[in-house]
Design a protein around this nucleic acid. Structure first.
Lengths: 129, 129
DNA sequence: ATAAACCTTCCAGCTGCTGGAAGCTCAAGG
DNA sequence: CCTTGAGCTTCCAGCAGCTGGAAGGTTTAT
């Protein structure tokens, strides 16, 4: 099938699919006219990458996950290790954002927000607080 | 003072300070030898940007905040509006990550993680769940 | 006098796409 | 049969926000 159809089935834009090919993540057959040609199996791999990206895995991690996906003799512990690393990253990111949120909320809460120039937010950013 | 000293005082790497100048965020005087020359006031502005970036503001937002910082006649409502927008963004990001975390945690929790190949994480990514 | 530590500019690269231009191919309608 | 439009191809550029490195000038300390 053409890239347009593979795009619809996998949920990835054609541009992204070409990009993934360029960086060697997903390959494709070619027809005589030069068009890319995808099988159902290819589409499943594309879909797999789509889901993994949506779950926060980097392209490099997708590469690892894809090779585990392909490996009939994989050990699930390997997959789990990657996922747990990612989970940790996500948790750290959440903690970081939560702390940011707290700081920013604190500044916002103390700003009266009227037409006067004195502003605890500006002062906080200036480090005067 | 030289860029190295300004870097130490503001907490921004010299490279970043030059970059901020290149994009017109922070200017600097020049000495006869071509070296950049920073005043204490410049350093305060650099520090301000540093803090704002750390709090999650984009460079463009820093530009706005800097001009409000400079504006003696600013209305604090303007600052507050920008900060509230950012706060909303941070909250949305946290919600998104929390949902990611939930999905990923669900997959991880169901993976026995041993030497066998069957793996709910791979299956989940493949969309077979 | 020389070496180390600064400073300068410029160019490239990181992640992960996305947009656009120029050009080829294919399917359908008149 | 011709044309039109959709879909495909490649290549180049750009987004954010730096960061690394090369090649070279300056300053400072020994």
């Amino acid at each position: 099938m053409n890239i347009g159809t593979a795009s619809l089935k996998s949920g990835l834009p054609p541009k992204t699919i070409r990009y993934y090919e360029e960086i060697g993540l997903i390959r494709s057959d070619r027809r005589q006219n030069g068009y890319r040609d995808y099988s159902e199996k290819d589409v499943r791999r594309l879909h797999f990458v789509h889901r993994a990206r949506d779950l926060g895995f980097s392209v490099e991690e997708c590469r690892q996950l894809l090779s585990l996906y392909d490996d009939e003799a994989r050990e699930s512990s390997e997959v789990k290790a990657i996922a747990e690393l990612k989970l940790g990253e996500i948790e750290r990111k959440i903690a970081e954002l939560t702390s940011l949120k707290k700081s920013l909320h604190h500044l916002v809460a103390h700003c009266h927000g009227d037409d006067r120039p004195d502003c605890p937010i500006i002062e906080g950013l200036a480090g005067r607080v």
